[in-house]
């Protein structure tokens, strides 16, 4: 007997009786995501293009967004704030990430816990801490007044500065993690080799570590930017009425002005800002990958 066994028949009979099961297992997740994510998103997008009374398609809401200066200002404020957060997170996170990537002492565990523990505390606690520190009658102003260095409180809260400080604190652990992963990927022998060739500490950092950790720097900036742009609680509490960003403006549109189409347009603008940033990230990553594969292909 030379049975013609085609690839098509499954080797296990038991498996055949189970083939419907994976689909059944997947369907609840897909259902939940369709009803509570895809459908609402679709409706929101639809609403941003719909005339409120006549339900006819329109671009009025978008026109309003671009002509009324407040919205555009909010958009730019959000972008500026996110950029500043991205920069400060990366700059502040770098020394910590370098230490975590290179240290082999037991202090590493301590620093690691210190760097990441705030993440467990939640945003409110940390923002509350910054409120106490930055308020007009807060920690810093109190200290400076007490020492007689200033005569009236410095405006440290309810402005861009406060929000950037608060958000940097919120996002910092994520920046540190992505920088750390990148620096860990750099062979420490490269640094030793450079030192043996006579490079100073500074030269090693400038010519070896920094250039090779560019991917980590980029991803830290991207993560920080997107997290900052979509943050709500920190700008709401530390920025208040004095510093409004898209997130807080959307909230106002929905709950105070009850202008849903306009809220949708603002949400869309925020979403597009995020998608644009992620797109930049994806493009950068794929460019880097293809360059890497070309160079390694050349070696072979």
């Amino acid at each position: 007997m030379n049975s013609l066994a085609l690839d098509l028949h499954p080797p296990a009979r038991r498996r055949r009786t189970l083939t419907w099961f994976p689909f059944a297992a997947l369907s609840p997740s897909l259902l939940v995501l369709s009803v509570f994510f895809a459908l609402p998103m679709g409706m929101m997008i639809g609403m941003s293009f719909t005339q409120t009374e006549t339900f006819s398609p329109t671009l009025d809401h978008y026109q309003r967004f671009f002509t009324d200066g407040l919205s555009i200002a909010g958009f730019c404020r959000t972008a500026l704030m996110s950029l500043l957060v991205a920069i400060s997170v990366t700059v502040l996170g770098y020394p910590v990430a370098y230490f975590l990537a290179r240290s082999t002492t037991r202090w590493r565990a301590v620093v690691f816990a210190l760097a990441l523990a705030p993440e467990l505390a939640g945003v409110v606690l940390r923002t509350y801490g910054w409120l106490i520190i930055l308020e007009d009658r807060g920690f810093i102003n109190d200290l400076l007044l007490h020492l007689g260095l200033i005569s009236s409180p410095l405006p440290l809260s309810k402005n861009l500065f406060a929000v950037v400080v608060g958000l940097t604190h919120v996002v910092l652990p994520f920046g540190i993690l992505s920088l750390m992963t990148s620096i860990q990927g750099i062979d420490p022998n490269l640094e030793r080799a450079a030192q043996m060739l006579g490079a100073s500490r500074l030269a090693v950092i400038r010519t070896i570590v920094l250039p090779l950790s560019v991917p980590g720097i980029v991803s830290s900036m991207l993560i920080a930017f997107t997290m900052a742009a979509s943050a709500y609680a920190t700008p709401a509490l530390l920025g208040g009425a004095g510093f409004k960003v898209l997130a807080t403006m959307i909230y106002e549109q929905v709950l105070f002005y009850i202008d849903w189409p306009f809220a949708s347009v603002m949400a869309m603008s925020l979403l597009l800002m995020m998608l644009a940033i992620s797109f930049v990230g994806v493009r950068y990553e794929s460019r880097r990958r293809s360059r890497a594969s070309v160079s390694s292909g050349g070696e072979r």
Binding site: S3, A5, D7, P10, P11, A12, R15
Partner: peptide, 24 residues
């Protein structure tokens, strides 16, 4: 072992064709 089904031909163990028998 039965993890891969042959495209053609037969596999017998102790004279019995195993092509349709799952590994277990």
């Amino acid at each position: 072992a039965g993890f891969t089904a042959p495209s053609r031909g037969d596999i017998r163990i102790k004279g019995r064709s195993q092509v349709r028998v799952p590994p277990e």
